[in-house]
């Protein structure tokens, strides 16, 4: 960890890594979606609309995973005061919010033909909506922080405490009588036919790599902004 405590060392890795993550992610995501849209069979009951799964589920997982990243970065900031912790948490937040919003939007679009409604206040949908609002709150708190590096203590604590929502979203379909169906993919196995499961996993990988590339870009921007601020201050003093 301390190897990358020095921003210069982090950048030395981040700069070449960004295009690698971006292009591999883009290729896999586009490829998986094309595969899913054109080469998978129509589903028994839903017909073609099942293919929304290839964007809906990765968005859900990445929206949730993003907040886990924020929680981890917040702990690292509070406990070890790692200089890149706050920067990484901020970088994760906006894309995480986008994925959460996409999960809600694509889910709603899917729900209309499949279930018969755009929305229900069941456990899964409500907790995912709450996650999206939590992201907005975190983004606002983080940008209100006085430093450009680490976030305010309030923001970091919020990032950690809010993580309780992630297992809630996951378990919601088990704990409560829900409109959203129960888990199709579990540690024990999957009730999704292989024809859909493989493009889904590749799609998740592709979008995940893209998420990584975006986070790196946003971290690089933040580090550059810090350098700019420091230089501007020095130039003003001269």
């Amino acid at each position: 960890m301390h190897k990358f405590a020095n921003p210069a060392q982090f950048l030395r890795l981040a700069r070449p890594l960004t295009p690698v993550l971006f292009w591999s992610g883009l290729l896999l995501a586009l490829g998986a979606c094309a595969w899913g849209l054109t080469m998978t069979p129509a589903e028994r009951l839903q017909g073609e609309t099942v293919k929304i799964i290839f964007v809906h589920v990765p968005s859900a997982w990445l929206g949730m995973g993003g907040w886990v990243g924020i929680a981890i970065a917040s702990i690292i900031q509070l406990v070890w005061r790692h200089p890149l912790a706050g920067i990484s948490a901020r970088a994760i937040a906006v894309p995480g919010a986008v994925f959460a919003a996409l999960c809600l939007a694509t889910g709603s679009i899917w729900g209309r033909p499949a279930w018969g409604t755009w929305w229900v206040w069941d456990g899964r949908l409500t907790s995912m909506l709450i996650l999206f609002f939590m992201y907005l709150g975190y983004i606002a708190l983080a940008s209100a922080s006085s430093e450009k590096g680490n976030v305010s203590r309030v923001a970091a604590v919020f990032g950690i405490v809010g993580a309780i929502n992630i297992p809630i979203i996951n378990r919601s379909v088990v704990w409560w009588e829900s409109q959203h169906q129960k888990a199709s993919i579990t540690l024990g196995g999957s009730s999704i036919d292989g024809a859909y499961l493989w493009p889904l996993l590749v799609s998740f990988l592709g979008f995940g790599l893209l998420y990584g590339a975006i986070v790196l870009m946003r971290m690089r921007t933040a580090l550059a902004d810090i350098r700019i601020e420091a230089r501007m201050r020095r130039l003003a003093e001269d």
Partner: peptide, 16 residues
Amino acid sequence: HGTFITAAYTITGLAL
């Protein structure tokens, strides 16, 4: 169904 699929993928593409 095509309309729904197109809408979902378009929103995803535009947002990302």
